[in-house]
């Protein structure tokens, strides 16, 4: 087999449907486990169902079980939310276009973070997996230890660097720069773990695949791009999901760098609506929260297949 054929074969193998590994009949075991896990999941199920029901109600506070007796479904909170009314009696605080803009901003940050994370950690992961160099172990160790430093402890210093760097740019570029800065700084928090994961993926790929190409005189960078990367696609997909989630839910970085410029993401928007429980109007909050969940759920389910292979790869010792 030449490397290309082998590659195709490998791909076919990956696309095989997940086969149950168990050989004995599992119906009874499944039922027992499903009930057990179901019981453990009950509180979660209840709270999330109540969240969705709240978004279709006009209630003070979140809907609780005792409110269900008088539950009257209504679509009004969704209309209010999308039309910029954060409370039924309030004026329009924002327009429908603006709420779409908020969703778009969230997407930009999330997509940006996942692109940066995937790009940098597939590269670094490859180097850690394939190239012997001095300080390799120390660097890997450092990357792991970095996780001990919380983003919240870093934000002030990250802010300081930002403020100093602003002076070098014309004010007209500040908004764009703020976006880029948020994406890069937020991505950096995810990079250490991602490098570890990607290294594991590369470790799993047999060396012979690239070896042939390199012997033929292809450059290492080309081999990485054209031969190795396609083999770790599941890893890339999964990584991008996790990075996407990180960007999608980030609050503090977005708050510091984007909100002052009147650039909201869903996370800052929702926080503003619910932060003060005394005056919050919950149905609209619930609608926004539900909307927030939908893309991530779709993302997860559609990429489930790929995800299953990621972490195992990352952990391969």
């Amino acid at each position: 087999m030449n490397p290309l054929q082998r590659l195709r074969a490998r791909r076919r193998e990956r696309e095989e449907p997940l086969i149950d590994v168990e050989t004995i009949p599992r119906r009874r075991l499944t039922i027992v486990l499903a009930i057990a896990v179901g019981l453990a999941s009950l509180p979660m199920l209840i709270t999330y169902i109540l969240l969705i029901l709240t978004s279709f109600s006009n209630t003070a506070g979140m809907l609780t079980i005792s409110d269900l007796a008088h539950y009257v479904p209504t679509i009004q909170p969704w209309i209010d939310f999308l039309e910029g009314k954060v409370e039924p009696t309030a004026g329009h605080l924002y327009t429908t276009m603006e709420i779409l803009g908020i969703i778009l901003n969230t997407l930009i940050v999330a997509a940006g973070v996942s692109i940066v994370v995937v790009l940098t950690s597939t590269m670094a992961g490859y180097a850690f997996s394939r190239i012997r160099f001095r300080g390799r172990k120390a660097l890997m160790q450092l990357v792991m230890i970095l996780h001990a430093f919380p983003g919240v402890a870093l934000i002030i210093a990250v802010y300081a660097l930002y403020v100093w760097s602003l002076a070098a740019l014309p004010p007209s570029a500040w908004n764009t720069y703020a976006f880029i800065y948020v994406i890069l700084s937020r991505a950096s928090l995810e990079i250490p773990m991602s490098i570890w994961l990607m290294k594991g993926f590369f470790d799993k790929i047999p060396w012979e695949v690239e070896w042939a190409a390199i012997v033929d005189g292809a450059s290492r960078i080309r081999v990485w791009r054209e031969i190795v990367l396609p083999l770790v696609k599941p890893g890339i997909a999964a990584l991008s999901i996790f990075a996407f989630l990180a960007g999608w839910e980030d609050f503090i970085y977005v708050w510091v760098f984007l909100k002052p410029r009147d650039i909201y993401t869903l996370a800052t928007f929702i926080e503003e609506q619910v932060r003060n429980l005394e005056t919050a109007y919950f149905p609209v909050v619930a609608a926004a929260g539900t909307l927030y969940l939908i893309p991530t759920i779709i993302f997860f389910i559609t990429t489930q297949h790929l995800l299953l292979e990621t972490y195992a790869g990352g952990m391969k010792a």
Partner: peptide, 16 residues
């Protein structure tokens, strides 16, 4: 291979 990741980690992690 290493520069992009290490640059980002340095600027946004180590320096801060």
């Amino acid at each position: 291979f290493l520069a992009p990741a290490l640059t980002l980690i340095t600027i946004f992690y180590l320096v801060p």
